[in-house]
C-alpha cells in the first residue's frame, strides 16, 4: 500500500440485519481498516445513517465507494474527506485525579468546554464534544494526569448548507 489516508465516509443504508456486514466486507477486502463507525436510525426509520472513518490507500477509495454504492442495501455512500462539513465527536474520559489535582484537571476541562459528569475520590469523568482534532488535543492534555478510560463515539459528519450528506 502506497499511502495511508484517513477518509470520512457517510452512508445512507437500509435499516435491517446484515447490512453492516456487507459494508464492512467491502472495506476489509481491499485492506482498509475501519477506525470509527457510527450508526443510527435516519429521520425516516426505514434507513440508517452511518459515518465511517477508515484509513487506507486513497487510490482505492474510489473503488470502495463504487462497491459500497453497488450494494443493494446502500442508498448512497459519499466521501467527505476535504469537503465543507460539520464534524462532531463525543468523548467520555475518566481521569486519574485525587482532590489535590482536581482544580488543575477542571481548568483543562473548562478550557475545552467539557462537562464533568462524575467525580469520585480518585477520578473525574469528563464529557467532551467537538471535532475530532479538539478531542485529540484534550486527550493529550489529560494524558499527563493519567487517563483511566476513554470512550469516543467516532466521527459524525453532516454537509453544510443545503447540500445532502
Amino acid at each position: 500500500m502506497s499511502r495511508e489516508d484517513l477518509h470520512s465516509i457517510s452512508l445512507l443504508v437500509n435499516n435491517k440485519p446484515g447490512v453492516l456486514i456487507r459494508i464492512s466486507l467491502v472495506f476489509a477486502r481491499r485492506g482498509y481498516n475501519i477506525d470509527s463507525l457510527v450508526v443510527s436510525p435516519a429521520h425516516n426509520r426505514q434507513f440508517s445513517r452511518m459515518s465511517i472513518t477508515a484509513s487506507g490507500d486513497p487510490d482505492t477509495l474510489v473503488l470502495i465507494l463504487g462497491q459500497l454504492n453497488k450494494l443493494v442495501d446502500v442508498i448512497h455512500a459519499t466521501d467527505h474527506t476535504g469537503d465543507v462539513v460539520v464534524q462532531r465527536e463525543l468523548a467520555l474520559i475518566k481521569v486519574d485525579c485525587t482532590a489535590e489535582r482536581r482544580t488543575e484537571v477542571l481548568q483543562i476541562s473548562e478550557h475545552f468546554k467539557c462537562q464533568s459528569v462524575d467525580i469520585s475520590d480518585t477520578t473525574v469523568l469528563l464529557e467532551a464534544t467537538g471535532n475530532s482534532d479538539k478531542l485529540d488535543a484534550l486527550e493529550l492534555m489529560l494524558e499527563k494526569h493519567g487517563i483511566v478510560e476513554i470512550v469516543r463515539s467516532g466521527k459524525l459528519v453532516m454537509a453544510r448548507g443545503a447540500s445532502a450528506t
Binding site: 440485519p17 477486502r29 442495501d73
Partner: peptide, 14 residues
C-alpha cells in the same frame, strides 16, 4: 447461509 453468501452474490435475503 446468507452470511456465507455475502461476498459472492449480487444480493441475498433471509
Amino acid at each position: 447461509v446468507s452470511g456465507v453468501s455475502y461476498p459472492v452474490v449480487k444480493h441475498s435475503y433471509l
